[in-house]
Design a protein around this nucleic acid. Structure first.
Lengths: 205, 205, 205, 205
DNA sequence: TATGAATGAGAATTCATTCAT
DNA sequence: TATGAATGAATTCTCATTCAT
């Protein structure tokens, strides 16, 4: 059974890789792309500089990869929450609740996406646009459906969705800026939902 | 005949300083604080490196100064527009219109404030928070007044204001991302206004 | 098989550090603090710029450290030579002999202390004063003892010690300025001793 | 009378030139060659940077010129004092007295020569050597004369002169380091004289 | 003559990346 | 695999010097 040990090795290697990526997310989220040095990251992961380059090709690639991965994770989580509901109020509530939960449990991920990646690399701009588009469409689709059913007034749903997306992000960031976000989390989710529904002009029939 | 310092020289010096600051705003807005090098800025202003340090103490000081100056300018412009109206719809319309105008005529300023300053210097964080607070309070005050007059439903005005501020910023950034923002400017201002009023739950009496 | 840090690597690192410090002493002694650039030092040590900053925090810190270290070394060597003798002539002879030996074998150290550190950094002034004081007291103490035993006439021993210290330094520098100091070293030590004893007004009983 | 004004002009120009040179001596003496900037000098002279280059070709040339000029002045003053006496004790006393007077009235000049020029420019080394030689020969000549008359014991007069020159310089510097050199000046001159005579082994007949 | 705005070569320092062990 | 010593390109900033006014 010559390959048994390789399994263990692979597991260990993956674990370490994951550790380093998590450390990197924290450091990037805290300092931003430029201020975060490779030495900061390896210090946070308790490994040597050389090890970084064993697992990742370079700082930039890792950052872009991390950004994409966390963006996909966030978007899919939200999408799934929204998709599993039928009515606009339920969809909005589920999305806001999920977003608040994620922000509370994984603040570094949210910080990385909303702050750490801004004005970082030119190469990242396309991904940033993708992420913003994803968030906007997340809200635009339910809005279109509601519009068809005349649950919301006639409007430019694209622009409303932009507003809702930006508004929720701002509320999330303000929540995370509190000394103890947990305490406010529940109320925040409720109020975000109310905000988004009002902004859509939703009128229950 | 000795050198006259109070003649055209003075005017020229001021003009040059202004040129350099405008160039710096453009470069900072485009690349962000870290990626923008002093050489980029002087190249954009068509002067030599030394000239930069003749006019400004260092890159960081200039950036912070520029950020503060443009933040004050934007907030005061918006505040003035809002203050000169009485009713909530007029206030919101005036604010949105002014914001769109500024974004259209001085896109670099708006980019600098909304993008270029994010995740830049630790020293800038306090000013960033101040700027966000300024934007939030800009909307919160009219909201409070409307609440007293029962023109909007009971709500957490702070959080609604966060949402409106973030929503409008996102719409502004999406407007600026268009190939020709001018064409959409008017519609955008109208739709931002409608968005903000709906988000506040405003009901005309 | 991971990297062993406690093997030859350690020894090599120490050796390299020592090499670089010796190179730095030579360059500083030859050019003085300001004219000696970091590039000069790394060129003399055959390493890259970055290596300098891997071993030392910055140019200034290294220089001050080097100055202190060599000053301590010189003062202790001289003090020890003087302390291990009983009578004034023996003490002076031992001190001069040791000084001449050091100057002959480690001219860079002596140059650094007597020339390289003059007018260098404001931060160094305190250490320079300490060094001069050390040299002066080195001669003042035996002088006081001899005065008590009436082997030297009544005098301001502080000022005599200043004169002896300055005189010997000047003779050392003139010795080092010769094309081949070794040839003169022995005679120089003898004559320095005679000079210092005469300057003290020493009369054998 | 077309050239009348030129006289005045020339006088003024010379006066300003002298002012600037004196300011330069002070600044160089205080900070040393490298740390003293052209801006420091023109600030001390209350003129503009450009004016500096109207009067002097460049910083280095001015410094070398200043060094030579003050070195000549000091050496000639001392030489004259020594030459105008006949016996060794008188010569030494006159030299020490003059040196102390100069150091008290023109501390900047003495500081410049003894400290400001050390380790400054490679180009200055030759002049520094000349200055030291001048000081050494100042004492060596009377010493030779005294030796011929058997007023001092057989000795290497060159080395004794080095010692006396270095010793006196050290005592001068220590005098100038006092908070109020004036108070000690007289005693210092007396003690320097005694030191030098003892160091020469002088025995009054 | 005198000014001071403008220049740019050169210095110190940082940090992503490589590679022998 | 893992390490950390070594590298050098790139950045910020200084300061002697020039030159139009």
């Amino acid at each position: 059974m010559p390959y048994r040990s390789t399994d263990k090795t692979r597991t260990r290697k993956d674990a370490r890789r994951t550790d380093m990526m998590q450390a990197a997310v924290r450091v990037f989220a805290e300092k931003g792309y430029y201020a975060a040095t490779v030495r900061d990251i390896v210090a946070a992961a308790n490994v040597a500089v050389g090890t970084f380059y064993f697992y990742f090709p370079d700082k930039e690639t890792l950052f872009v990869h991390l950004y994409e991965e966390t963006a996909d994770f966030l978007l899919q989580s939200l999408q799934q929450a929204v998709n599993s509901r039928k009515t606009l109020p339920e969809q909005v509530a589920a999305g806001c609740q999920t977003y608040v939960n994620l922000a509370t449990y994984e603040p570094a991920i949210v910080q990385l996406l909303l702050v750490g990646g801004v004005g970082a690399l030119p190469e990242l701009n396309a991904r940033r646009v993708n992420f913003r588009e994803g968030l906007i469409r997340l809200w635009q689709r339910p809005l279109e459906a509601a519009l068809e059913q005349e649950q919301v007034p006639l409007q430019n749903t694209r622009r409303t969705a932009e507003g809702i997306a930006g508004g929720i992000d701002e509320m999330i960031l303000n929540l995370l800026a509190l000394p103890n976000p947990d305490l406010e989390a529940s109320a925040a989710a409720t109020e975000m939902t109310a905000f988004a529904l009002r902004a859509a002009g939703y009128q229950p029939q």
